[in-house]
């Protein structure tokens, strides 16, 4: 639309203190990185909208408003939008503009219960939408925000111990310090080799994010390996203990989301993979709970 009709107005949305606000780097659809201002749950969103008229023309409008929208876009069953947050403020009654005009806005203590997320088949986003209503086409300007939803640790930490193996072939026992980790945490653990008849070449740890969208017949899942981390080189013998230490802070991980607005979930699995000399892979996955603190 704007290709054919150049909008006669420029809308600029500026957040107050934007320069000093913390930004988050996220990849957009094209794989480019963009920086988005970071908000937390309950934080007010305020700022200023500046509208400039182009070429000194005079523009009539039917009113100006700004919306704060939280939405979940899914594409499991055709493109789908579901707003879980919708706030709006009138900035101006219908009037005529012939010079730049500033309008302040403020959404006070907005509840942002979900964390922003960009996945394969689903995204959850927050954005400001400023609309100048006109008889002809409205002029719209959007500005995306990024939200971190801090959580309390979901439960008390327990160590995870597992005993796995292939009969008469391999028997290992592994142990992680806990089942849930904050995103800044370190996974620490160890692996005991109780029986080794495989010719193991190396062993790695990977973190896999599984995103599930929808429910029932329409549900689709997508797994993505976010981290691959070699923890052992060569073949151990019986009785060896291999230490595990994986810093999480440096990776782009997503907290565990369960049924966000009944739309989607993201879970993270820790996978221990043994690769033998014939490149066969033996693995054991276990879910870990990630949370943001």
């Amino acid at each position: 639309m704007s290709l054919f009709f150049k909008a006669p107005l420029d809308i600029e949305v500026r957040l107050s203190g934007e320069d000093t606000r913390k930004h988050v780097e996220v990849k957009n659809k094209n794989g480019r990185k963009e920086k988005l201002p970071l908000y937390e749950d309950g934080e007010s969103v305020k700022g200023q909208v500046t509208i400039r008229v182009k070429d000194g023309r005079r523009v009539e409008h039917l009113g100006i408003k700004i919306q704060l929208i939280g939405t979940i876009d899914t594409n499991n069953d055709g493109l789908n939008f579901d707003n879980f947050l919708y706030l709006v403020q009138e900035l101006s009654a219908p009037a005529e503009l012939n010079h730049p005009e500033n309008y302040s806005f403020e959404f006070k203590n907005v509840e942002k219960q979900f964390e922003s997320y960009r996945g394969t088949n689903v995204r959850l986003r927050y954005y400001l939408k400023c609309i100048v209503l006109r008889k002809s086409a409205d002029v719209i300007r959007e500005k995306e925000l990024w939200v971190y939803a801090k959580q309390n640790p979901p439960d008390t930490p327990t160590t995870v111990k597992m005993d796995v193996g292939i009969e008469d072939c391999l028997h290992i026992e592994f142990e992680y310090s806990k089942s849930r980790y904050s995103l800044k945490d370190v996974i620490v653990g160890r692996i005991y080799f109780l029986l080794v008849r495989l010719k193991i070449k190396h062993m790695e740890l990977s973190l896999i994010r599984r995103e599930t969208v929808g429910s029932g017949a329409n549900q689709i899942s997508d797994s993505q390996t976010l981290v691959r981390f070699e923890i052992m080189d060569g073949a151990p013998v019986r009785g060896e203990t291999i230490p595990i230490r994986l810093f999480l802070r440096g990776y782009d991980l997503t907290p565990t989301f369960r049924d966000v607005n009944k739309k989607f979930s993201t879970r993270t699995f820790l996978s221990l993979v043994l690769i033998d000399e014939d490149a066969r892979r033996y693995f054991k996955q276990s879910e870990i709970i990630l949370y943001r603190d």
Binding site: I231, M232, D233, G234, P236, V237, P243
Partner: peptide, 8 residues
């Protein structure tokens, strides 16, 4: 401790 990871 971490050196244990290399078993080759």
């Amino acid at each position: 401790e971490m050196c244990r990871g290399v078993q080759h």
